[in-house]
Design a protein around this nucleic acid. Structure first.
Lengths: 252, 252
DNA sequence: CGGACTCTTGATTCGGTTCAAATATAGTGG
DNA sequence: CCACTATATTTGAACCGAATCAAGAGTCCG
């Protein structure tokens, strides 16, 4: 019998099977640190790889919870709706990040998730993942780290919303994106914003006009190059200092 | 050989052993839903029951992580320090709640924890807890729910800080305390604030003066009875409506 | 093109902060 | 117990940062 793996490797023209092993995010995502055998086990429980078109919802508040979602490709925003129907964006997610963990406690989703661009996610049925936890301790340990990271991320957002002035918030936002792109092997100084000014403002607890003014200000100071949604951090150190509160920002 | 459990039960004058089984919080805390045998297993890994005097730190940012802490008795605040040394309180914790989960991801604590009154915690060595996860699936499932709940809690705090006006925030804060006391079998309308006005303001992203004015306003409206830190919700429904944004609050 | 968004910029307003001062409360030691 | 001090809280007045209101310009896309 021929070895299917060898066949696949030689037949370079046929599309690779979508699997954790050949996903560029497997070093950041749930399968981090797993050996090939365990990664295969994880692959086997993954439901479908699902496409989500820009603007579409992956799930909504109060939807019954059954799966977590790992982002293969693209960007998402998660947001809550208050009783008046206004949204508060609680985060922007990119490839390799896991969504839906807030739903575990009550078996229904607590936020909405919408794609910021055409994207792809891996559906991970949670009950099957729980079965794997008993078999692959490494997976469980990494899952705990991911959940813990999510808690830390949100605590930082609270610090931002509760404590920082507008220019600090925006600088912190840019620096945060920068480091996340760096972790994915992309440029830390040059990237595209996938979200609108309105979304940025909403996330940062500011209005769209404030964001627009901040963009202009940072541009005039020579700290930022901006062309529509294309961003270049021209003075990352100063932006970091500003985010840290160690630097102030002239008004004009 | 005599059965020590029977002896303990009959000798009512000697103090009960501190254990999960005889802790009033075991229905809310980590051992929720465990049978007696499993609760004993959990008991055996719990390090010490540690007292923390009012104002004392349980742990600080950057301390190495080794244990989670469950509150047996008392109240705590968790807070972050920004690089300038200002604090942002990220939560107030009460009996039955678990602290330290944000430290799992990086093996060091990301926030400071201080006791708001003389308190007691159970130290839960995390590595030993991980061992138990393999033996008691119920415990693992509940642990995931607790972490998930923490994520949800913080998302709600983001909604509060990013979206709500001062009077909404304060109403939401009171309603939140109210429901947590109710869940513990205490009065939902009458309780003592364990934290200072300053702490409340810090948590809500407001100043101490704003809190003081809100207290006065709610008192004059007859929605709230206040005597120092003793609080009575005189019109809980209206406070809930205000927190939900369905009700406005006259200025004078 | 036209029409719908999205973004920018200016003028004005306002909610909440800051500054300031008075009062109340809790702790501490004589 | 009381005086003394440090700390916490309340209240008023002035100020300021960001929101709101308003108008225009740029951009996307059929």
């Amino acid at each position: 019998m021929s070895n299917p793996q060898v066949i696949q490797r030689s037949a370079s023209l046929q599309p690779m099977k979508t699997s954790c092993a050949n996903c560029s995010m497997h070093q950041l995502c749930l399968p981090m640190g797993l050996d090939n055998a365990d990664m295969d086990r994880l692959d086997q429980i993954i439901g479908r790889r699902r496409r989500v078109a820009r603007g579409e919802s992956l799930y909504r508040m109060d939807d019954p919870f059954s799966s977590l979602y790992a982002i293969r490709l693209g960007h998402f925003k998660t947001y809550q709706l208050n009783p008046a129907g206004e949204q508060q964006i609680t985060g922007f997610q990119m490839a390799g990040e896991l969504m839906g963990m807030d739903a575990i406690s009550s078996d229904k989703h607590h936020c909405n998730v919408a794609a910021l661009e055409d994207s792809e996610v891996c559906e991970i049925p949670f009950h099957r993942l729980e079965e794997l936890f008993g078999v692959i301790p490494t997976l469980l340990r990494h899952f705990h780290r991911i959940m813990s990271q999510e808690i830390t991320r949100e605590q930082n957002a609270m610090l931002l919303l509760g404590n920082m002035r507008a220019e600090q918030r925006f600088a912190a936002f840019l620096v945060n994106l920068s480091s996340r792109y760096a972790a994915r092997g992309y440029s830390s100084t040059s990237f595209q914003l996938r979200m609108s000014r309105e979304d940025i403002g909403n996330y940062l607890g500011l209005t769209i006009e404030s964001i627009s003014r901040l963009v202009s200000r940072f541009r005039k100071l020579g700290w930022l190059g901006v062309d529509k949604r294309e961003i270049e951090l021209l003075d990352p150190e100063r932006l970091k200092a500003l985010a840290a509160g160690a630097e102030t920002c002239p008004m004009t």
